[in-house]
Design a binder for these strands. Structure first.
Length: 274
DNA sequence: GGCCAGGTGCGTA
DNA sequence: TACGCACCTGGC
């Protein structure tokens, strides 16, 4: 069978490992070095980087419409890396994670995923999301499932989400978010149009959505690159380096969220290498 | 067998 | 404002 393929020449350092293992997404699986398979926007794809070229097993039209924006390939990250390197420590983190990109994910998937991430470890988060997709998502090809629509999850019961998907105490949060998204109380276009702090306040009116999850949705789902999620790792890093009253946007500027991802990626990598 | 994880929300001081 | 605690579950 003819397999369409796109080869895209990269003009800057890009690492699929860094992109998919930096904690911003939960559905990509490594097939080999710098080779990943995943699903987003109801499509599956395999991506691979070697010799400065990114290869995708899809036609160029799909690559340009879906994967190129998803991977944020048209943004000048070299300029951003330079802009956020405000001191020696950040410059080192930036150099360490120079191949990172902030994925432009679907906001609903991001919201749901980060609700499930709270007080949880990554293998378990991935497991819950895989069960959620297999149970409620559309099967786009054999054993590959799209992320379920909010309508589909809104029709589920809390009991089912607890015991079958094994969401635990996060089940009512997922259900409430699904109902809000399906019912139109969550209007993603309206949120995109708002400044980050206002969009965050709206997201935080949902149960189980606090500052951290809201910031993750802003950064990874709504393209708000100034949003700065602070989890326990970032808290430790920030407190140690810059003190308690740190304001990320005054320090790093409009790309504070990207700076956060470099710092986070290095802090987590150092921890797992211990 | 027990500890604890990439958080949130509520009660108390 | 700040802190302590409960909340499901499963990886280690």
């Amino acid at each position: 069978m003819f397999q369409p393929k796109t080869v895209y020449r990269l003009r800057d350092t890009v690492s699929l490992t860094q992109i998919f293992e930096c904690g911003q997404c939960f559905r990509w699986e490594a097939l080999g070095p710098e080779t990943y398979h995943g699903v987003a926007f109801g499509r599956e794809v395999s991506l691979s980087i070697s010799n400065g070229c990114l290869t995708a097993d899809c036609p160029p039209s799909e690559f340009d419409a879906v994967w190129r924006p998803y991977l944020d390939l048209d943004r000048d990250y070299a300029a951003i890396r330079s802009a956020v390197s405000i001191d020696e420590h950040t410059a080192q983190a930036v150099a360490y994670g120079a191949g990172l990109r902030i994925l432009q994910q679907e906001p609903w998937e991001t919201l749901c995923s980060f609700i499930l991430s709270q007080c949880n470890n990554i293998p378990r988060i991935r497991g819950i999301i895989a069960r959620l997709c297999a149970r409620y998502g559309e099967e786009i090809c054999e054993n590959v499932f799209a992320f379920p629509t909010p309508e589909r999850i809104a029709a589920a019961t809390e009991e089912e989400l607890r015991t079958v998907v094994r969401c635990g105490y996060r089940a009512p949060y997922v259900l409430a978010a699904a109902r809000a998204a399906a019912g139109g109380q969550l209007d993603w276009d309206a949120l995109r149009a708002l400044p980050s702090d206002e969009a965050k306040v709206r997201l935080m009116t949902l149960p189980g959505i606090g500052d951290k999850v809201a910031n993750c949705v802003l950064l990874f789902g709504l393209g708000k690159l100034d949003a700065f999620p602070v989890d326990v790792w970032m808290r430790r890093t920030i407190n140690a380096l810059y003190g308690k009253n740190f304001d990320p946007v005054s320090a790093f500027g409009p790309y504070a969220g990207i700076a956060q991802q470099y710092l986070f990626y290095r802090a987590r990598s150092e921890h797992s290498n211990q």
